[in-house]
Design a protein around this nucleic acid. Structure first.
Length: 563
RNA sequence: UGUCUUAUGGUGUAAUGGUAGCACUACAGAUUCUGGAUCUGUCUGUCUAGGUUCGAAUCCUAGUAAGACAACCA
């Protein structure tokens, strides 16, 4: 173990890991490490959440700590149980298990009691002004705010009104509880932040009608961390300005030396996609995509259906790291991460997605040979399988050209190519319809060049994949591409819906795949040789195979052609 | 004309006062029964100006640029 540590190049730590190691070294919090992943159950998790999940759960896992799942459900207007289930499913799919599931709503009584304590200490008051008035009085970052006329009302009055806020006697929006801090603070969050508001029109998804006054994030979050014993409260950069308030609230109530500490890291920004909840919801509601799990969506369920594996996502997250720099990550790196991961694990299969018939004119009409082929050349342990070969095959339309340019190594009259795992064939011509479209391609095979035979070592520039026409299974193939046609749709002045990539989905219904795929199961991963990585769509039914393209293979021929 | 934060190749990230490295991308070559993968090489970088120091990407000061904050959202 020690030897290996010396030999392995020391992986550099990100600033949060470094902080955790330092805290551990100093024996802070008794050597305890506790994190939490705190989603609001108001939507589906996306790849940005995955970044946070990997950090929250990863820190706990790597440093002998625990990570809990806490639903931050302090606003019943937006939340729903529907999301609670999908969030749990996605976290587990990513390979993590929380120690406990908590809900901020479990702490409503404790939070209430602490709020009462604050009122009694003269540090909180009930404000009866309208939202607009309060906003106006808040001032601006450069102009100090003005104090509410209700700021100095007697404690007893505050207590009585606070009770009323929760009894149903107060209408939504009529009163709020505010912390009495500093209306002139340079930090806007200190200008008497709202701690409680009244919500009577939406029952809470867990507490029902019990509460009418609900705590706000800034008040509830830090306290929840404190109640649970969180040591490292990790969140994204936009909460940086909230940290002083987080600390202020905790310091009002802490009754021990222990303090949770908030640390912020950069959120994930990806090119060619949007991750705001509002925009994703719009895409779904306006049917610009087929649902939250549309394979073009950056949601975890979308990526899963697209064919991304948890390993591919971890691979990506490892590459982008955690810093305090708010940059833009290239979605190409996510795609590369998928290729790199799937290359090692995906079974190779033959699939022709744009078929044209190839007839081997000198091959016996009723002969069928079983050809042995590797399941994955990257992993010899996966062994081989047999695929049927016959006189009539399908090959890709792009693999034949009557008048081929230089460096075209595929099927063209007079040129030899290898049919993968089978024979070397020489193209002899083609047939065309009235419009000049190629309908059939002809070739002759060399019987001495079957894979494994000495003659087959002959150098041939091109190798083509194929399926036997009589044996192949028909399949639908959905080719997915980037959802948007511009790098950063969020920074564009135009409506983001006008920036959608019109070619983000192409459905091919006349595809042929090798017979072994008859038993393919939903979400199984394959490499269609020379084409890309594909997964079986869950819509697949008996007799109707559907494949989703996760990502294409790198195509250096396409690149060559562009020159 | 506020507070907080950030700034390293095209992109993302390392170097924790001591040789600016890694990955992606791009380009070139080797190899290959996937124009995939693999291997080799090349191009490209410390925001600016001062200061501290034997020595600064790193520390200090100022500037510049970018982001966050003025929801009864989280």
């Amino acid at each position: 173990m020690e030897i290996r540590n010396e030999e392995a190049p020391k992986k550099s730590l990100n600033f949060i890991e470094a902080m955790v190691e330092q805290d551990l070294k100093e024996g802070k919090n008794g050597g305890r490490i506790q994190t939490r992943f705190p989603p609001e159950p108001n939507g589906y998790l996306h790849i940005g959440h995955a970044k946070a999940i990997c950090l929250d759960f990863g820190i706990a896992r790597n440093y002998g700590g625990v990570c809990n799942l806490r639903f931050d459900d302090t606003n019943p207007v937006k939340e729903d149980v529907e999301y609670v289930d999908s969030i749990q499913e996605d976290i587990q799919w990513l390979g993590y298990q929380w120690k406990n599931v908590y809900y901020a709503s479990d702490y409503f009584q404790q939070l209430w009691n602490l709020a009462v304590k604050l009122i009694k200490e003269g540090k909180a008051y009930v404000d009866e002004q309208s939202a607009e008035t309060i906003a106006q009085q808040k001032g601006t970052p450069t102009i100090p705010g003005i104090e509410s006329p209700f700021r100095n009302r007697p404690v007893e009055e505050n207590l009585a009104l606070f009770e009323k806020m929760n009894s149903g006697e107060v209408a939504d929006g009529a009163m709020v509880l505010r912390a009495k801090i500093d209306m002139a603070s340079s930090n806007m969050h200190f200008r008497d932040p709202i701690m409680y508001r009244v919500i009577t029109k939406h029952p809470h998804h867990r507490t029902g009608e019990k509460w009418k006054a609900y705590p706000m994030y800034d008040y509830a979050h830090g306290q929840s961390d404190y109640f649970e014993g969180v040591t490292h409260s990790l969140c994204t950069l936009e909460f940086e300005v909230h940290r002083p308030l987080y600390d202020w609230f905790v310091s009002q109530f802490a009754d021990s030396d222990y303090r949770p500490r908030q640390t912020e890291f950069n959120r994930l920004n990806l090119t060619y996609t949007v991750m705001s909840k509002r925009k994703m919801l719009q895409l779904v509601q306006e049917k610009l995509v087929k649902g939250w799990d549309d394979p073009r969506m950056p949601t975890i369920c979308g990526l899963r259906r697209r064919g991304y594996t948890p390993e591919a996502i971890h691979n990506f997250i490892d590459k982008i790291g955690y810093t305090k720099y708010d940059g833009m990550n290239d979605i190409g790196l996510l795609e590369y991460s998928a290729r790199e991961t799937l290359n090692k694990t995906a079974q190779r299969v033959n699939a022709v997605i744009n078929p044209v018939k190839l007839i081997i004119t000198n091959y016996p009409e009723d002969k069928v040979e079983m050809m042995e082929t590797e399941n994955n050349p990257e992993d010899p342990n996966t062994g081989t399988r047999q695929i049927p070969f016959s006189r009539e095959l399908y090959i890709e339309h792009e693999d034949f050209m009557e008048d081929a340019p230089k460096k075209y190594f595929r099927m063209t009259p007079g040129q030899e190519v290898r049919l993968k795992s089978a024979y070397i064939v020489k193209c002899t011509g083609c047939a065309k319809d009235a419009d000049g479209n190629v309908t059939e391609v002809y070739c002759e095979y060399d019987s001495q060049t079957k894979s494994g035979m000495p003659e087959s070592n002959r150098k041939v520039k091109g190798t083509l994949h194929w399926v036997s026409a009589a044996h192949a299974l028909k399949a639908e193939v959905r080719l997915y591409d980037r959802l948007f046609s511009v790098e950063n749709p969020s920074a564009d002045d135009r409506d983001f819906r006008d920036l959608l990539n019109p070619d983000s989905l192409k459905v091919l219904t006349e595809c042929y795949v090798e017979p072994s795929l008859a038993s393919a199961k939903a979400l199984e991963h394959f490499q269609f040789q020379r084409i890309g990585y594909f997964t079986v769509d869950p819509d697949t039914k008996e007799g109707k195979l559907i494949f989703n393209r996760t990502v294409s293979l790198k195509d250096s021929w396409a690149k060559e052609q562009k020159k």
